[in-house]
Nucleic acid binder design. Structure first.
Lengths: 185, 185
DNA sequence: GTCTATATTAAGATAGAC
DNA sequence: GTCTATCTTAATATAGAC
């Protein structure tokens, strides 16, 4: 790991947390500059495409992170289907800091920048849904029931995040995860 | 109904749809002006507090609307508890145009303007949750179970809206409502 | 790679005529 | 009540030195 890549990930960390807490429109270059410790000009050196390229990059990074933490757990064929789902839930929860943060894809798709990112988010969400559906079919459910269960789980996870924001209490999300975890046993 | 009040509601309609589709930060005065057909100066005549007053007003209006369409259905003591919940769900679905629109409170609380509206949204959400919890206790559930069921229903509704946005398909929300409706029977 | 300085455009808001 | 015109500030973006 070179010093270049470690400082690059530090920059991305600052951009990421800014987009997550302020949304796309709220994350001004001034705010992004503050969060990274870099001047606006330096940000443009790293991201010639400006703010849009920054958000697109961080969206890709966050998707990678969520895949690593959660969705890869669904592919461990040596574990039982239920164990895989338990680990998926734990990974998803970790990704959103147990309800304290929100999913960047959800933030971007709900705000004014929706048109910029919709097609990529839609595609990724469909892929996630397919992964989870597949895990349920491997647990013995019919295709139809597996799809339904997968959608219900996603709905509960994102609804839990939304309610945690509206009630300003991450425990709401944690309760949702605990319930899903028990249901999967 | 005077001509004044009818044009006022027309103005609010334009502001409302702009805030819903663009979020607080994305809804610029230029966009709000376009949507209402009024100049910026005229908007300031109606809302001396500027954009923040516009959003606060529309948030209050939308809460009133959601209360009328959905939550008032929970108080009709002449109906059975299950009927009330069915009508609540139908009203909520109507409020969000059956999954085509999103709840303004959710949009505002997820974006960069969160600090401006959080306390009022949190309070309102707690009140909604109490209403729904109450409906479940009247249906015979224990306080604890009623609260859990109410939270689960909210989580599913807002999760359904979120998934509908991410998958760009309002039917996802409609399926969620249909499931909740069947579960309540 | 990072900076200061600056250009350019857009946003929020107001003045004053009608 | 609504407008045009304008002000001020902030946002995105670039130039050019180091």
């Amino acid at each position: 790991m070179s010093s270049e890549s470690s400082s690059k990930s530090a920059i991305n960390e600052g951009l990421y947390s800014t987009f997550r807490s302020l949304g796309y429109d709220g994350a001004t270059l001034a705010a992004l500059s503050r969060a990274t410790g870099l001047s606006k000009a330096s940000l443009y050196y790293h991201f010639p495409g400006g703010k849009q390229e920054m958000a697109a990059t961080l969206l890709r990074d966050s998707v990678t992170q969520l895949n690593l933490l959660a969705f890869k757990q669904l592919n461990k064929k040596k574990r039982t289907a239920n164990e895989r789902i338990q680990r998926f839930l734990a990974g998803f929860s970790e990704y959103v800091s147990h309800g304290q943060e929100n999913c960047l894809a959800a933030i971007l798709v709900m705000g004014g920048a929706r048109p910029l990112f919709l097609s990529s988010i839609k595609q990724q969400t469909e892929s996630w849904l397919a992964d989870l559906t597949n895990a349920y079919t491997e647990a013995g459910l019919s295709d139809k029931k597996a799809r339904r269960k997968a959608l219900e789980m996603f709905t509960s996870l994102y609804g839990g995040l939304c309610m945690a924001q509206m009630l300003d209490d991450p425990k709401i999300f944690q309760q949702t995860v605990n319930r899903l975890s028990k249901d999967a046993e």
